[in-house]
Amino acid sequence: MANYPSLVKRFAPLFGLALGASAQAADLTVYTYDSFISEWGPGPKLEKAFEQQCQCDLQFIGVEDGVSILNRLRIEGKNNKADVILGIDDALMEETRKTGLIAPHQQPLDALKAELNWQDGQFMPVDYGYFAFIYDSRKISQPVGSLKALVTSDASVLYQDPRTSTPGQGLMMWMKAVYGDQSNQAWQQLASHTVTVTKGWWEAYSMFLKGSADYVLSYTTSPAYHQVVESSHHYKAAPFSEGHIAQIELAAVTTTSDSPELARRFVGFLSSDQAQQIIPVTNWMLPVRDGVELPAAFDNLVQPQRIGFSASEMAQQRKSWLREWRNAATQ
C-alpha cells in the first residue's frame, strides 16, 4: 500500500508529458468552484484585473462546488495548495473555520453594505443573493406572496436537495425560520405538490425553463440574467412577506499560505469597486458594497427583508434539520 503513491509519483512525469497539464507553481493559488472560473464566469476577468495590479501570477483551481472546496481542505489538511479559498458560503463558514486553516483577513469592513451586517475577521463577503421562488409571469399573473401561501397552495414546485445543494439548504432554513417546530408538517404539505427535488440548482432551473413547474427555487437575481443576456422580462422572483434567506459567498486566506500578504490583498481586491462591477454580471449575485454601477435590470430586483439564522446556529442545527427533512420527505 505504502509504495503505491510513490510509484505513481515516479511515473507521473511521463504521463504529465502526455497529458500536458500545466500546473506550474503560481504566485497565488485560489481554490474556487468550477462555474466561477468558466470562460463566462467572473474568474478570467478577475484574474486579468488582479494580475495587472499585482504584477503576479494568479491561478484558480476549480472544484465541483462550494462544499467541495471545504471537503478538499479537510482532506488535504496542511498540505493544501491554496493561498485563498473563494466561494464557501456563510452556511459552511463555521465548519470551514473548524479546520483551523483560516487566517484573519485584516481587511476593513466599513465599505460593505449595511444589510449584510458583517463582522467576521476571517471570512470576507464577495457577493450575496437572496433565495427566491421564480415564476413565469406569462403563466402566473397572481404569484403567491408568502412561503406559507406557497406551501398551502397547489402550485407545482421544483426545489433542490438540501443534502447536495446550497439553495436546498437555504429552503431548509427558510422553512425552519417561518414554521419553527411545525416545519415537519409543512414539508409534507409541500411534498404533495412538489414536482421533483433535484440534486443541484441547474437541474431544477432547466426543468423550470422547460415548463416543468410553476415555481422554482433560485435567487432574486435570476430575472436579471434573463433581462441582461436574453432581453426577456417575463421571469420574475416572488417577494415573500415573511422575508428571505440570504446566501453570502465568502473568501478567506489560509494559514498555510506562502504569500499571506498577496493573499490578503486579493481578498481585499474581491470586495473592491472594480471587482464588484465584474462579479454581479458574471456570477449573477449582488455586489457587497454600495454604489456599484450595474445594468438597470439590477434596479428592478426584489428588495427583500433578510431573515434566517446565524452561521453558528446553522452549524449546530443542520444535521438535525436535515434528518427531519429526510424523514418528512420520504414518508
Binding site: V67, D161, T194, T198, T330
Partner: peptide
C-alpha cells in the same frame, strides 16, 4: 434516480452514498 426520482422518496443506495458524502462528509 437523482434526476428523475423526484426527491428523497425515490433514493437508491448509490444516491444515498453521494448525499452522505457530499455535505455531511
Amino acid at each position: 434516480v437523482l434526476a428523475l426520482g423526484g426527491g428523497p422518496r425515490a433514493t437508491t443506495l448509490e444516491v444515498a452514498i453521494y448525499q452522505a458524502l457530499k455535505y455531511d462528509f
